[in-house]
Design a protein around this nucleic acid. Structure first.
Lengths: 377, 377
DNA sequence: TTGATTTGTTCATTTTCTGAACTTAGTGTC
DNA sequence: GACACTAAGTTCAGAAAATGAACAAATCAA
């Protein structure tokens, strides 16, 4: 078990990248003497290692960084069938990847994970010994201990103690998390939001997910529902949504909605690019659909900016690109719906992600618990 | 200066009310031995005192509570002219109240405060000696050190180091804060949100303000702009707003907007009750106005709930009441725009506040800095 | 009255951090 | 190349904060 100071240090390095001992001492507000000891302990534990030597005036300083292979993590996404299962190191690098059948029965899932583990761990000589946690990403609400799935429509679950079941079957520390929140954590740990304390991730796929980091910590909300942007009412009195109300963002701007609207207009559409292509040739229906979806998403994001004033909005998307009409409309809708004095002040970063997002996010949940712990401040 | 443990303890008592030493030890995760010493020190300092004795099995336990008169605070609201100036104790009780002329010149403000202080402090024998801070509430953006006013349209300020100016002139520790955020802090310290970690305050007056507490701390946002709900677009393409864009919540649901719309319809309206009265007699224009305003506010609050999943929404209002049509429409709009599975899960509390809100909020900023400090976690 | 029970205190010990002096390993200058 | 100069990192004695175990205190229950 790590001490509180050791955790703080790991967190600082995770945010800032490699640091010298003197920098670390300043950041944590500790003396050089104390820092010296903490660093020595973490080096002895194999968690930190010396990397570069920086020459300047005076004695050269030594950069310390996390040792990427001091711990390994397994991430599993329960959002796809078959469910991807990856092995990652402390840098978020994917070392191996395999799949397991998806099930709705928690015990069957635990069994499948346990059976898949040996072959996954075989891919790296140290992985088995240094496996430090399993993370699972799923669609639904998760409690703040990252152990219980409170509710999942997709999996038809109510109060399932999934983490405990997997932990007992596999013997490995396990944490679960909502899909969008897992992606946010992976962006904070491994991605482009490392040093940012307040940011929101909006993940655009078949559905729309969102999660907030506030003051450097994932904000889960009082019932685990923070970031449920998909069911914000964007078109009052609009199309009925599967959630029971009308005009949700999900009914207009999710990929599923875009595809459905296209089909209704007689356009063939298997991905965003299909409609973008149609729109670029001047097809009025395609243009209308993209405008409607883009304006809705932009408005929702603008409202998010107004409400929470994040330091960054990170939009992740799987399909197509943001170079076309859709992206343009989204950006413009954000601009026109944000307080003019603020417009452009909040960076919007677009990131195309691959099929590993969810599994990588899941692994980052385990990594986060290893590095920083869940209940620290 | 207080130690970190002492601060944590004060925070816990401020949230939970009086506690026994054993309860405190459990809450902070400390040993009884450590707690014993910390409590003794704070009692010696006059900050804590023993109140009630609880009899049960075993040795009776002693409740410790904050000593209300261990510190006094001055709160000033720069939102009204003349500017109210109050003296409050650590319970938020207003001990004395006076006023000073409002000015846009920071130096004149500092001067007026310093000149007003002696007569204010005279009202209580200990106040002068135990004055622990001045808090100032204003309309505008404030930096995270609560010292600089980054921008204020109302006062026509840009980067004014108001806290420093007042501190230098008066010799008293001073902090400034945005109006809505100050109200949120006073609700957390003195009001009905004491024990709640995640909540949002929506203050309805001539304008609409909003502020969030997240994980027990005021969330200021990356540019101090968190909670700018008034300029969320609620009616896309709607009425032009003084901020430069269109359809802001402020143009439909603020008291100012309601009054203006009423006037445009030929209704005389000096307060919310006037239109409520008209509506109750069946006046179609009045009903229309209240419906429009109420739906807009309700939608904005519903979106807030979806985005942030707070544990409580506290709506504060000065004029009229929420018993009439307006309140009904607001509540209904919230219900219909929140994910049905969640509807009713987030408590909405309505609170009518008096003319002291802003000044009390200002005082609570000083009290918060005394009790908890600004940069603790 | 006696035992059970739980709060709160005391004190020796451990853990964690600090401050000051010191060592180390370079740069810059003559 | 010898010299001062500079800044990083280490060492070590001592301060500060927390712990654990034993104990004193104050009640209830039988």
């Amino acid at each position: 078990m790590l001490t509180s100071s050791q955790r703080q240090l790991l967190r600082a390095i995770s945010e800032s990248g490699p640091l010298t001992r003197t920098e670390m001492a300043q950041m944590l507000g500790l003396s050089k003497a104390a820092m010296s000891g903490i660093a020595r302990d973490l080096i002895d534990l194999g968690v930190l290692h010396e990397t570069e030597i920086i020459y300047g005036q005076g004695r050269p300083s030594v950069l310390l960084d996390l040792h990427p292979e001091c711990a390994f993590f397994v991430g599993i996404s329960l959002l796809e069938d078959p469910a991807p299962m990856i092995l990652s190191d402390l840098n978020g690098k994917i070392i191996a990847r395999q799949a397991m059948p998806l099930s709705r029965d928690p015990k069957v899932i635990a069994e499948a994970i346990s059976e898949g583990l040996p072959s996954l761990l075989e891919t790296h000589p140290d992985a088995k010994e240094k496996l430090s946690g399993i993370g699972v990403a799923l669609s639904g609400f998760v409690d703040e201990t990252q152990a219980h799935c409170v509710q999942s429509t997709l999996l038809n679950w109510q109060d399932v103690p999934l983490a405990k079941i997997i932990r007992e079957r596999s013997g490995i520390e396990t944490f679960i998390e909502n899909d969008a929140k897992a992606v946010a954590v992976s962006e904070k740990l491994f991605g482009s939001a490392r040093e940012i304390q307040n940011f929101s991730v909006v993940s655009l796929g078949d559905g729309i997910g969102c999660a907030h980091f506030i003051d450097g910590r994932l904000y889960r909300g009082n019932h685990g529902g923070a970031g449920e942007i998909a069911h914000c009412t964007i078109e009052p009195g609009g199309a009925p949504c599967r959630c029971g109300k009308r005009g949700c963002l999900d009914t207009v701007a999710s990929m599923k909605a875009i595809k459905e609207m296209s089909r209704a207009e007689g356009l063939k559409c298997t991905s965003l690019s299909d409609i973008e292509d149609e729109a670029s040739t001047g097809n009025a229906a395609a243009i209308r659909i993209l405008h409607r979806a883009g304006s809705a998403l932009g408005l929702a994001i603008a409202n998010l900016i107004q409400m929470n004033d994040p330091g960054l909005i990170l939009i992740t998307h799987v399909e197509g690109s943001f170079e076309g009409l859709f992206g343009t409309v989204v950006n413009q809708a954000i601009e026109t719906n944000v307080l003019p004095r603020y417009a452009g002040q909040t960076p919007i970063r677009i990131k195309r992600v691959d099929g590993d997002v969810w599994a990588r996010g899941a692994a980052s949940i385990a990594a986060h618990n290893f590095l920083i712990g869940s209940h620290t401040s």
